[in-house]
C-alpha cells in the first residue's frame, strides 16, 4: 500500500516531464520537418542555367529554314537554264523526264487530281527549302545555292508559274505568287454529328 502510494505520488511529475519533453519533441519535429520539407521541395528556378550559349556562327550555319517572306534565303541565283541539266541528272530518275511521269511524286501539271507544285504548293519558298534540305533523296544537302535556285526556277517554269527566263534569287523568289496559295486554310476539325 505504501509502495503503491509513493509510486502514485511520483507519477504526476513523471507525466509532466513526459508532456514537456513530448511537446518539445513535437515542436522540434515540426520545425525540422518544415525545414526539411523546404529543402526537399524547393520551387524550381525560372532558369536552371544548363546548356551553353549558341554562337552566331552556329546559328547561321544550321538555320537553313526558309520562310515565305524569304527569311533565310542564301546569296546566289539561278534560272531554268541552270536548273534543267541538274534536273535531268539528279531528279528525273524519280520524278520523270518532264516532272509529269513519276514514278515518285509528280511535280508538274495543273490538271486532274494529281497534286503537283503547280496546283498544290502554296509558297514558292517551300520548293527551295525542301529541295535544299531533302533532295536528291540519295544525297540530300549536296546541291549548291545556285543549283537550288536553278531547280526551283526550272520547276516553277515547267508549271507555267514563272517565265523560263526569270532569274530567281533571295529578292525575286518570295515574290512569286503560287496558284494554290489562296486555297489553303488553317483548320481545326472539331466535328460532331448532328
Amino acid at each position: 500500500m505504501r509502495y503503491r502510494k509513493a509510486a502514485y505520488r511520483r507519477a504526476p511529475i513523471s507525466r509532466l516531464t513526459l508532456l514537456i519533453a513530448g511537446l518539445l519533441g513535437c515542436v522540434f519535429c515540426l520545425a525540422w520537418n518544415v525545414l526539411h520539407d523546404r529543402r526537399q521541395h524547393e520551387q524550381p528556378p525560372d532558369r536552371f542555367g544548363f546548356g551553353r550559349p549558341a554562337t552566331q556562327h552556329e546559328i547561321d550555319s544550321e538555320a537553313i529554314a526558309i520562310a515565305p517572306d524569304g527569311l533565310g534565303l542564301p546569296p546566289g541565283q539561278g534560272d531554268s537554264a541552270i536548273g534543267a541539266p541538274v534536273y535531268k541528272l539528279k531528279c528525273a530518275v524519280c520524278h520523270g523526264a518532264t516532272g509529269r511521269e513519276g514514278p515518285f511524286q509528280k511535280l508538274v501539271g495543273d490538271t486532274g487530281k494529281t497534286k503537283t507544285i503547280g496546283n498544290y504548293w502554296p509558297y514558292a519558298t517551300t520548293v527551295f527549302d525542301y529541295i535544299r534540305r531533302a533532295m536528291p533523296l540519295n544525297a540530300p544537302g549536296t546541291l549548291s545555292a545556285d543549283e537550288v535556285y536553278g531547280l526551283t526556277a526550272y520547276l516553277l517554269s515547267a508549271n507555267r508559274i514563272i517565265s523560263p527566263k526569270t532569274v530567281l534569287d533571295a529578292r525575286t523568289l518570295p515574290s512569286v505568287e503560287m496558284p494554290a496559295k489562296n486555297y489553303f486554310i488553317a483548320h481545326d476539325s472539331i466535328w460532331k454529328p448532328q
Binding site: 529554314a65 520562310a67 507544285i117 502554296p122 517551300t126 525542301y130
Partner: peptide, 11 residues
C-alpha cells in the same frame, strides 16, 4: 511569329 509553311505542312 509565323509558320514556315514547310513541305510537310503544305503539300
Amino acid at each position: 511569329d509565323k509558320p514556315f509553311m514547310t513541305r510537310e505542312e503544305t503539300s
